[in-house]
Design a protein around this nucleic acid. Structure first.
Lengths: 223, 223
DNA sequence: TGGTGTGAATGCCTTCACAGCG
DNA sequence: CGCTGTGAAGGCATTCACACCA
């Protein structure tokens, strides 16, 4: 229950938490859930750090941004810490998600189980193709893109997954924003520019492979 | 942007080039290819920076790690710079890629066009299910996992995409390493620990959504 | 003039080291 | 003891500002 400690001057409102910390928070949560499945009750910063390849100090510093969760001499209670991190990330609730673009990748994402485990539920999908509109895929109804504003508003959907071709991605993103979406996970290999208070996270599958090929080439050069 | 992260690889501090620079390199390349499709011959650091939401100085500093590509008073020649970046990333050649796990996500990746455009070609797939082994999906043959070492060696495959269930991911990763793979793109939501000179890049789709939900919650708190 | 390449300064993140507490 | 939480130190990465060049 420890409340925030930082008695620095004017820090509170501008809680500038480094972006890197947030992405590690998700990793901590993932490891904690793994520990919980193995019936581990407690863990500590050294253990968590080792699992992720970072230092123990880093783990403690990261968590310190959000309060005090640990017990000196003991470590952290897995269940409690996982719960606290979920609250921070916002995954202590269930998020309905809209998916746009029921192509190759889109269909796979509709069936991806991993989302549900973390509180995300794809509740509707959108596409343009008459062959898809009106059908259900993996139990999720597919609507015409025209109905985006109506349904997003009715279902109070805040998050969207964008899995459309590159050349239409920006245009569809604009429609998502206009429909009231506040966060977009973009799989199209283009930069989405959003005006206003919309968060955009991009996942470019080819770029991930490029990072690998660089690593492999670099490694080869060493020998 | 994903990316990128404390997903332990074989870093070996000799990396004179910051990891963040490498991931931006891929973004520069993506924008350059976009400019080229629009028949733009030259660009400059301010333009590139604007497209990616970073400063012009950052762009120049990043490129400076690898030599001098610019022309004072002009900027950069799109074609030349793109070509140079490809050489740096190693995507100036074609990489055969093995995919393991022909499930929901794996099948979508088999059909994903974006890989080919950047020089990656999924040439074989592996699975355990008898119903899949022996078939072709999106024109790519599916073999039993047992034949991994044989085929990887024969086809001289260095990169692999891991799209198997979480509980088998580490074990399959070990088999990939044993088979001689040097780079793994892991889609299972677990940390893969690799011994030796193997690069691992992880993509956790649920984590990307978590980053979004955090951003949305944070934004909401502000009001 | 317009824009690169780069030392210097700034700011951010990570690591260190240890006080404090159960 | 064991392990957290945290000021202080250290190390990088980003930004600034300007010499220099076509």
């Amino acid at each position: 229950m420890a409340e925030s400690k930082p008695n620095r001057t004017t820090d509170e409102s501008t809680s500038a938490v480094p972006k890197a910390v947030i992405s590690r928070l998700s990793l901590y949560l993932r490891e904690l859930q793994h520990l919980l499945r193995n019936d581990e009750e407690t863990t500590n910063s050294a253990r968590l750090g080792q699992l992720l390849g970072i230092t123990d100090a880093q783990v403690r510093k990261d968590l310190a941004h959000f309060g005090q969760f640990g017990y000196p001499g003991i470590g952290y209670r897995c269940e409690e810490l996982a719960s606290r991190i979920k609250t921070i990330l916002g995954t202590d609730r269930e998020w309905p998600v809209a998916l746009v673009g029921v192509g190759n990748l889109g269909q796979a994402l509709l069936g991806y189980k991993g989302f549900n485990d973390q509180g995300f539920r794809i509740s509707v999908a959108f596409d343009l193709a008459p062959s898809k509109v009106g059908s259900q895929i993996a139990g999720i109804p597919v609507f015409h893109l025209d109905r985006l504003p109506e349904i997003v508003s009715r279902e109070k959907i805040q998050l969207a997954i964008l899995a459309v071709p590159s050349d239409t991605a920006q245009s569809v993103a604009d429609q998502l924003v206009a429909a009231g979406i506040s966060g977009i996970l973009n799989f199209a290999p283009v930069t989405i520019t959003s005006s206003g208070d919309v968060a955009v996270v991009g996942v470019d599958l080819a770029i991930e492979l490029e990072q690998l090929s660089f690593a492999v080439v670099k490694q080869a050069d060493k020998n």
